[in-house]
Amino acid sequence: MVGDNTERQIRRMLTGQRVGVLATSQEGSPHVCLIAFAATPDLSRIVFATSRSTRKYANIIRDAGVTLLVDDRANREEDFHRAAAVTAHGTAREIAGEGEGERRLFLEKHPYLGDFVASPTCALFEIQVQRYFLVSRFQNVVEFKVPR
């Protein structure tokens, strides 16, 4: 089934890649940056961390709408037929206090960021994903709505 396969491909991409491109909005202009992330197994949420003095933090506080791009390109010619990309649209929310599970999820994937996440100036966020777009074989695009 196309649906199952799409979900599997998205999951493989989100577990296989460590870093993605996060887009936030700054007074109508996009601002993008690289972030380390981890996705929940059901794909409904994506966890990341940022220091509170960054631009992305300030942007999200004003406008929670964000987009994350994750891809597996290798900067080679064959990327054009081989590489795939997943774009996740969603809403970011700071996880305050209770987020033990999210913290663990994030640190299992990025154990070297323990000190960073433990800092009181570091904020843990989750993106509640509404939908994914999977782009493969150059121009194939499939939308996947996250079940609620």
């Binding site: 690289l34 380390a36 992305k56 960021l113």
Partner: peptide, 8 residues
């Protein structure tokens, strides 16, 4: 410009 480090 902003020197946001990669990852976090």
């Amino acid at each position: 410009e902003e020197a946001v480090p990669m990852g976090p």
